[in-house]
Amino acid sequence: MKLETIRTDIRLRHGKLYKQCVGWVLVLPTVLYLLVWTVYPLIYALYASLTNMNMARPLLTKFVGFTNYKLLIQDQFFLTAVGNTLWVTLLSILLELIIGYLMAKLFFQAQGTKGIGILRTIFILPIMITPLITGLLWSYILNPTLGIMNHLLKLFHLPALDWFGSSDIALYSIVAINVWQWAPFMMLLILAGLNSIPSPLEEVAQLEGASWWQRLTNLEIPYISQVVVLGIFIRIMENLKMFDLVYATTNGGPGKATEIVSLLAYRQSFLYYQTGYGAAIAIAILVLSIILVQFLFKLLWRREVV
């Protein structure tokens, strides 16, 4: 009996170890992948941000401590870039939500009408264009002398605007293009949410004569919020790393009116070869995004769970 127990015990223990080994071997590719493509670059970027590394003279790299970060918080271009990035993110998402909701309501009401499917497809086409092309297209449309937008404005006797040339307007032109491209995305998500509302509830709301506000807060929001919150997170992440659109239209100008963080990091790292400073900017962006996303996650997701 005794011997028997010991044997089973050994077998069991052996089995556990074996199982763990299998587990390790199975996750090994992922671990390797992460080590090579995520962990190593991150650690290297951290190291680079503490040096004066310059790609044009890599042999002269010296450890400089937190100098890059000190320069960063004094850098007007960086501070403006952070402000602009956050402002573009906030404003774009807000407008995308409002316009997306209104569009979704229209499509929801019009459901069943002939040809509505085609119209919906056309509406979501902008999402499929790469931001670089979007930027180029709009830079033609909004060209102050050759563009069609100012031509149309003139036809209606409205003042023509210098869409990208004026430092008061340029950032809003960027927001407008961004919203034009991504409001349909929100529309899609919200439409899916609206469609998931059970029809008896709809009927009750209608019978009881609920006002549009009551319908919105008590009926629609509970059903659409889950997808919308997901959409908001996707859009936050995309907006924080926005690059192509600005690169193709204003390149950050005039002055620093449309300076954004990824453009700044690109310039330092790949045009000036200030790898150290560029890495410091990248790390700063990373920390900011983590804080922002964590904060919003707590704010928005908790409500969701309730």
Partner: peptide
């Protein structure tokens, strides 16, 4: 970098900021 930096600041002056 000198040329680019100078150009960024001049642009601020030209745009009136």
């Amino acid at each position: 970098q000198i040329i680019d930096t100078v150009g960024n600041h001049i642009s601020e002056a030209l745009s009136g900021k």
